[in-house]
Nucleic acid binder design. Structure first.
Length: 821
RNA sequence: GCCGGGAUGGCGGAACAUGGUAGACGCAAGGGACUUAAAAUCCCUCGGUCGUUUUCGACUGUGCCGGUUCGAUUCCGGCUCCCGGCACCA
């Protein structure tokens, strides 16, 4: 790109700003909400970031040119650990560090010419924003959706804070720069009761027709619904120990039970038995292990007998109870019935500890012997050793035993989910303070709404958490009075998970300045749902579940008319460099500042859009830049040499001559309009740009450049190009059209439906399915005539001579296939 | 282990929701034009093998094996490899 163009891009950006091209219409007639996931302000942006924004920008410009009133806002997910780490390492206040980064990133976005409505910019670390996190927290609390409980939680020893389940990847901290092995700690923490919405989150997926199948499946697995029965076992002393099973048909095969070492009952169950000390030691050992050690693939199951027995309610058998590390406290009831004959895990455990194996299901036509079994039998079969249920197919057995248990009051049908409640407390500084007060007399009391926001104190000396919250060490923050009794009380020292911020920011964009409410429902409902949401796939089971959850709660609160936030989701692939994902924190990437200085914004946009379809990842090479640079140079040269007609000529088809090349160009023009529009609607920008390149080749090769048709085509082409190369299109538009308004205030022309195919088409002729010849025919040639033409074709004759023609298959306008014997 | 997705020229990728000329568009490569020269630009060639060797023709070719079909990159069955997600969920 010639150097002067970098300067021109700046002028164009200024023109857009001054003209307010991207301002949101507060009263949209035909609304379109396009949103990119708001980023963490990491300072210098790289090409990987630009992909996200470029796709959003192209959607916005395209939709705008198709007559929509578009909302295309931007903001910053500004709370979080990197700011705090910078404070710890460099002694800069997190707020200053964050704001400096925002300025840098924002400049890059401006230089890229992304068309945001900056009036609706939202920054989550501002009290004007986070006070509403606190507002929602209290609303959730009032509805029973925010609660505190003590349990074993994921603890990152490096970040010195707890993590939500969604933030633990393979037993390691999710943050790419941390990656520490996550430990278990027993703590009292705040949770959002997302499990109350498990079923609705699952059901809602069915409505999301335009979400990628992969994301929906990931969420479905994450929610993990499974249907079964809760069966009421009891210990010999009468203690109730219900268990969950999906296989009630194996109830007669239970030979032991197992309790999770971190389940509450595990602490007391062995008291007074000879096993007491062994059990205590085992639990201590088991809890010391990290999740990785405990659940790794190769890990052998361990356990210890508790000295206690339970009674199997279906046959009153006496069943030994173990504590075993393969049982999870957090799923079901934290205790299981174990059937070694028909569950592989139970089988392995039973073998190791010499527990009997009992067969209650035989494979069809076979008889299993527990002594010779090498693994559990888990498939369908015939029930045996199961009292009145013998001889049944086990699938039928599931139904019959379930019914029996319910009738006798020995159990009930239950559904279990793998989804856990969302742990939102963090022991860090740079986040939203939890608006709760702990009073000796009144217990936990929410901060009254009129006292919000609870401001994050700025006078912190030491940001390094030491196993407890940073804010606990700030007396002027922590000490307060109880809103109920007026006595001395303390604030909650924790801050919220930053995923709370991103769970509703898309609503704030619809009403960003409101200081009475988080948003006016009228305004939100005007724009919701999001019509096109663009972001990385890495949020599939985190943010993309959380924001659905929030939307459903707000729907229940009467604040929204929709209970799904977003109709269409497009997840794009990462951008890599030398096979490694570009990353700000790892300082690995092609930096936007450098790139823009060298190539300009349009080249950046086109290169990112053209090199691969959006969902695929890109391994960046400089070759990707060369092709699109040439394309833009050729465009520029064409428009410098030949003057377009800038106004769309309504009946251009009446003005063109019957010369074949004019007919051809006219049809190519309409094919291009159709292809660019269709592909853009599907966000297949790589092929849309390819179509523009093809048409440029057509234009360059066209003889009569003085003709009205040619000049008209140039005018149309410029509009089609505008969403992809906005600066150059705008520049050529303003410079040569003499118009004062932006090309983005123009609309895209529709293709002429009568000019989408050529009058003469080439029909390939196959013989036995192999291509042998081609004939050119008029498009309306009758089938019989085409068949005759094919049979008379010289090359065809060579193959058909002396053979019998069995049949001729003609696919209209596509091909002809002759079958001979 | 379970659940997804994928595999097409030297490379990025088209075509495959509806089976119908595989390789659009671009990069790289080779040749040519312009130029004192270079850059830039423009034109031509470009899956492989073989044959005539000019225009052309034959065979083969979309990870592998098989099937359905007049016809399969596209559908079905069975594999191999890659990339994601989940991971003792009872």
């Amino acid at each position: 790109m010639p150097e002067d163009f970098i300067r021109i891009e700046k002028e164009i950006q200024k023109f857009w700003q001054e003209r307010g091209i991207f301002k949101t219409n507060p009263n949209p007639r035909k609304k379109y909400y396009v949103l990119v996931m708001f980023p963490y302000p990491s300072g210098d942006l790289h090409i990987g970031h630009s992909r996200n924004y470029t796709i959003g920008d192209t959607v916005m410009r395209f939709k705008k040119m198709r007559g929509y009133d578009v909302l295309h806002p931007f903001g910053w997910d500004a709370f979080g650990l990197p700011a705090e780490n910078a404070a710890i390492i460099h002694g800069i206040h997190p707020e200053i560090w964050t704001k400096e980064n925002i300025e840098i990133s924002k400049k890059h976005l401006m230089d890229l010419g992304i068309g945001y409505d900056w009036d609706s910019e939202v920054t989550s670390c501002e009290p004007e924003y986070y006070r509403w996190n606190q507002y929602f927290f209290i609303k959730f609390y009032e509805r029973g959706l925010a609660y505190r409980k003590e349990s074993y939680v994921n603890w990152c020893p490096n970040c010195q804070t707890v993590l939500a389940n969604e933030q633990v990847k393979d037993g390691h901290c999710w943050r790419s720069t941390c990656n520490a092995i996550v430990e278990k700690r027993k703590l009292t923490q705040w949770y959002f009761r997302i499990t109350d919405y498990a079923q609705r989150l699952l059901d809602g997926l069915k409505e999301l027709k335009d979400w990628p199948e992969s994301v929906k499946i990931m969420q479905e697995n994450w929610i993990g619904r499974s249907e079964g029965v809760e069966v009421y076992f009891t210990l010999e002393d009468g203690t109730k120990v219900p268990i969950f099973t999906t296989r009630p048909d194996t109830l007669y095969g239970v030979t032991f039970m197992a309790l999770a070492p971190d389940a509450p009952l595990a602490e007391t169950i062995a008291q007074g038995t000879s096993q007491e000390k062994l059990v205590r030691d085992y639990i201590n050992e088991a809890l010391k292990k990290s999740e990785v050690d405990r659940t790794g693939i190769e890990t052998e199951k361990t356990g210890v007998f508790t000295g206690r027995y339970a009674i199997n309610p279906i046959n009153n058998e006496r069943i030994p109870v173990y504590i075993a590390d393969f049982v999870l406290a957090s799923y079901g009831t934290g205790m299981i019935m174990a059937v070694p004959g028909h569950d592989q895990r139970d089988f392995e455990f039973a073998q190791k500890y010499n527990i009997p194996i009992k067969v209650v299901i035989n494979p069809p036509g076979e008889k299993l012997d527990p002594k010779t079994m090498s693994c559990a039998y888990v498939d369908e079969g015939v029930m045996v050793n199961s009292g009145p249920f013998d001889g049944l197919n086990n699938l039928e057995g599931i139904k019959r035993i379930t019914k029996y248990l319910e009738e006798k009051g020995l159990g009930k049908r239950t559904v279990n989910y793998r989804l856990k409640d969302w742990l939102i407390s963090r022991q860090r500084y740079w986040g939203t303070p939890i608006p709760m007060i702990h009073c000796e007399h009144c217990g936990i009391v929410p901060v009254p709404e009129k006292d919000l926001p609870v401001l994050l104190p700025k006078t912190v000396k030491d940001y390094q958490p030491k196993g407890k919250s940073v804010l606990a060490g700030v007396p002027e923050f922590i000490n307060t009075t109880c809103p109920k009794c007026g006595g001395k009380a303390q604030r909650d020292p924790d801050t919220m998970d930053t995923f709370v911020d991103s769970s509703w920011y898309f609503l704030r964009y619809t009403d960003p300045k409101n200081d009475k409410m988080p948003f006016d429902p009228k305004k939100a409902n005007q724009w919701m749902p999001i019509d096109e949401y663009i972001g990385g796939i890495e949020h599939a089971t985190g943010h993309l579940i959380y924001f659905r959850f929030f939307t459903k709660v707000l729907y229940d609160m009467g604040m929204l008319n929709v209970d799904e936030p977003c109709k269409v989701l497009h997840t794009h692939g990462m951008v890599k460099l030398n096979g490694i994902t570009m990353s700000s924190s790892k300082r690995h990437g092609i930096w936007l500042g450098d790139f823009l200085k060298e190539h300009g914004a349009d080249v950046c946009k086109l290169a990112v859009l053209f090199s691969a379809p959006p969902e695929k990842e890109i391994d960046w090479t400089n070759e990707m830049v060369i092709g699109v640079s040439r394309f833009l140079s050729r465009i520029r040269a064409l428009y410098e040499q030949h003057k377009p007609i800038f106004d769309i000529i309504p009946n251009i088809q009446e003005h063109i001559t019957n010369k074949p090349d004019e007919r051809r160009l006219y049809i190519r023009l309409n094919q291009t309009i159709k292809k660019v529009i269709d592909d853009s609607e599907r966000i297949q920008y790589n092929t849309a740009i390819a179509a523009l390149m093809e048409f440029l080749n057509d234009l360059t090769g066209f003889e009569n450049k003085q003709s009205q048709l040619f000049q008209h085509a140039l005018g149309v082409m410029l509009r089609l190009l505008a969403p992809f190369a906005p600066h150059i299109a705008e520049h050529l538009w303003l410079k040569h059209s003499g118009k004062k308004h932006s090309i983005f205030e123009e609309t895209l022309p529709e293709p002429d439906p009568n000019a989408l195919s050529f009058e003469t088409i080439t029909i390939p002729i196959q013989i036995q399915g192999k291509l042998r010849s081609k004939i050119d025919v008029a498009i309306d040639t009758p089938e019989e005539e085409i068949k005759q033409l094919a049979l008379n074709d010289e090359k065809v004759k060579k193959y058909t001579e002396g053979k019998t023609i069995k049949k001729i298959i003609y696919v209209p306008k596509r091909l002809i296939n002759i079958v001979i014997s």
